[in-house]
Write a protein that binds this DNA or RNA. Structure first.
Lengths: 120, 120
DNA sequence: TGCGGTACTTACCTTTTTGTAAGGAGCGGC
DNA sequence: GCCGCTCCTTACAAAAAGGTAAGTACCGCA
């Protein structure tokens, strides 16, 4: 998604919402953070099979800028950084609920493969 | 979004749903078709300020393949083609409802510009 | 001394998506 | 005859998104 011509002008709410969720891993990041409340960088990486460190940081930074996730850095060695959903991130996730249900139906209809990621 | 490695494997429903809605104009197309029930190609084009004919056909074809829109061709001269939502397209739109509301809130929060498209 | 673990950044390259411009088929109107 | 209308298609070009690989800094452990 474009980063520069960001933040509108939007034609409708869908537009504005899709803007913050579209990105290869954002849906999953939201899902992971919602399921676990708090996750460290490496936990997220392990939770998203195939994501690279670069993409993960990039997406997390964008979501932070969009006010969806909170980033807490602990000045320790080795470093520890914890990510969690903000209030807005949480409400977004709730708004995504029906969409997720629709998607699940679609998967069922199409008989597409689904990769199941076991929640630890 | 990728067209070739389509239809999964998906990790969750959100994933599957976002796959069919991500595309620069898909949200708006859905919105237009939901608001007017039936629209001709040229009406859609006029309804989506800035869309090119190529992108519009491309997106409509993908959405047709995804079972979201129905395409009715009338063998007339000049040609007439009417687009409408299928049952799945309709339920998708309903599932997008909460997301749209969230987006509207976000726009309000951020004070982003919104381009209002007058519904004819 | 060298390796592993953490959480990144940076430079570079490939793939995907979007845009630009042009053409086409058939008919009515001037 | 030529223009305009409709709904596209095609070739090409630009922009954006994603991916690869390497490097950084600090410490504990063997």
């Amino acid at each position: 998604m474009a980063r520069t011509p960001r933040s509108g002008p939007y034609i409708c709410g869908i537009d504005a919402a899709l803007d913050v969720v579209s990105g290869k891993w954002k849906g999953l990041i939201l899902w992971e953070l919602d399921a676990h409340r708090v996750r460290r960088f490496s936990e997220l990486r392990r939770g998203l099979p195939g994501v690279t460190e670069k993409m993960l940081t990039q997406h997390l930074r964008e979501m932070e800028k969009d006010g969806l996730v909170h980033r807490e850095v602990y000045a320790e060695v080795p470093p520890r950084v914890e990510y969690s959903l903000t209030e807005h991130g949480h409400t977004l996730n709730q708004a995504l609920g029906p969409l997720g249900a629709w998607g699940t139906q679609r998967i069922r209809r199409e008989g597409s493969e689904v990769v199941d990621v076991p929640a630890p």
